[in-house]
Design a protein around this nucleic acid. Sequence first.
RNA 1: CGGGAGAUGGUAGAGCGGUUGAAUACACCGGUCUUGAAAACCGGCGAGGGUAACACCUCCGGGGGUUCGAAUCCCCCUCUCCCGGCCA
Length: 414
Amino acid sequence: MIDLKYIQNNFEEASSKLAKKGVSKDTLEELKNLFTSLKEANAAYEVSKAEQNKLSKQFGEYKQKNLDTTELKTQIDELKTKLPALLETARIAESKLEELSFIVPNFPDDNVPEGADENDNIELKKVLEPRTFNFTPKEHWDLASSCGWIDFERGVKLAKSRFSVLRGEGARIERALINFFLDFNRKNGFEEFNLPLMNNASMLKGTGQLPKFEDDLFRIEDEDLYLIPTAEVPLTNLYNDEIINDKDLPILMTAYTPCFRKEAGSAGRDTRGMIRQHQFDKVEMVALSHPNSSDEIFEMMVQNASDLLSALKLPHRLVMLCGGDLGFSAAKTVDIEVWLPGQNQYREISSISNTRDFQARRAKIRYKEDGKNNLVHTLNGSALAVGRTLIAIMENYQQEDGTILIPKVLEKYL
RNA sequence: CGGGAGAUGGUAGAGCGGUUGAAUACACCGGUCUUGAAAACCGGCGAGGGUAACACCUCCGGGGGUUCGAAUCCCCCUCUCCCGGCCA
């Protein structure tokens, strides 16, 4: 949730920032008006309520002294007829404000480039040269059958399309990657977690998936539970509604979890292969930080994810997302794209975002500093998407005969 | 899924119709003392809204009700713990 006071006091600035994300000035105007109405409605109710509280207290004193209370009672009764309507007005104002304020995206940072979609993203740098092939490299779905790592057909049989089965060495490399990633992250200061794969609606709301993106989530029938679309949800919400001692910041966390996404709206995209699945493995990093150090931690997280790919000797590039391509909660995002020689293009394998205080405000994650409570900054990033890493290994390490070499760093995990 | 108990501040734990946003202890923060630390002593210490700052409003799991007045009484829901059943 964005800071409503900021909108009220710096309307022009706020609206030009959100324009980058395609939010109209009218929407913001409406938000501002709803906020003002709520404050007015609250004020009106509170004045009457204060009066009533005062009279009730007096009533008690009269009773104690055995004084006549009939006149006081009349006064109170009269006041009480007004209160329900005032309260109702305030509540309506509140729910209207909430409805809108929870679906307005975060402000992008000032240095986020303008742009409509991924074509306007800016490449920051390339890491490692793509290998040159003396044969035509295959795409991973062609390699899947020759090396036997992925069984697409049986995945579909077991569940439906966009599910697949890893088999034999493929399954073992997936597991090796998870262990390698977790160990690497832990050595860089991230504490490892093992988490519930279902979270309740309040947590999903805290990180921004709800209420706006319910269609992307798998919901458990008859329960207030959803399958997590990313470990960002449980990791960030570990501190939901808590106040952290500032000395404990930053809190760096990592976890491996399967992730579940309906992929609503991506019909026809990446239907072949294992790029876009309903269930996929990911190792995630989450940081809760003091506002002053979130930029520094952001850079560290980007570096960490990039180093993982370098350790696997996988060529990749760093891309700064433009305003139009930025996610709902993010103020700034750097994507890491790995080179897929079979597809002859770079594909996203990690996305690192600083949400500033956007999630913290929703999830009420605060820190105490000099006796005052402030919102933390929350950051999240993949390190890395495991299935896509497997694909990248297949395509980059393939041999002419269809076999695949194993990256050296993984040897001790196999 | 059946039977019982409970849900209060960071934690433990009192309060059971009025001036109680809430005793007490521990934790935590500041100070005195000390070369430093510990101990001891002194002081502070829930959250959200509101205000220039006060005032003021809200919150004792959530929702509703009774009452002039509810943490305290009544109803519903949720969750937790213990016992039993089932089961990795």
